[in-house]
Amino acid sequence: MSVKRDSLSVSLTVGAYGSAFGAAAIAAHFTVLQACLLSLLLFSGASQFAVIGVIGAGGAALNAIATSTLLGTRNALYGLRMAPVLKMSRLKRLVGAQITIDESTGVALSQSENGLEEMRKGFWYTGIGVYVFWNLFTLLGALGAKAIGNPSAWGLDAAVPAAFLGLLWPRLVDRKSRLLALLAIALSLLLVPFVSAGIPIISAALLAILIGWRE
């Protein structure tokens, strides 16, 4: 039964974090409906924060879409990794694809010693659990932020970069990643005074593609 427990605890902790997204979306002048739609339809934490982060900083819609999509490309590789485990019918795939994210893949892979059946359980329990709680807490966070007024007075404008930092931190595992992070900071900040908002962030992604390609 431990896969059920794992799935539930991941769903609750990650889901609760949806309240930070809901609140941050309101701080970036999205409506409650838009915040909820992002959680229902986009459903990928980092990409959702990217949309509100880029738009909130005054960036164009196209920049927000591009940043969000590039951050979401890893979900395609998760789907690829999970396909032989899940063996979904075409119809089931339409649902399974939506919940193919960091957490569902992570819990599924953590069960690989216990066989395919447990991996499948891990994927579906976690994916559905995170979906339910993430959306619930997005709504609560958005309504809460709407009620309190001035986002800066409540630190919401710092919650967005802190959320990004929390997502980034576990990825800075080796020297190469840390070096790339430093280059991304330098490049994006150098560009800020000269280009419109959103471009410095996309430039960092291009830098990553260039380095990954050439190495």
Binding site: A46, F49, A50, G53, G56, A57, T67, L70, L71, T73, R74, L77, D157, A158, V160, P161, F164, L165, L167, L168, R171, L172, S177, L180, A181, L183, A184, I185, L187, S188, L189, V192, A197, P200, I201, S203, A204, A205, L207, A208, I209, I211, G212
Partner: peptide, 19 residues
């Protein structure tokens, strides 16, 4: 695929904090 999130998230932290 490993590099993109690192670069994007770092840039998002930097820009959302300092710009």
């Amino acid at each position: 695929n490993i590099f993109i999130p690192v670069a994007l998230l770092t840039a998002l932290v930097a820009v959302n904090t300092l710009a």
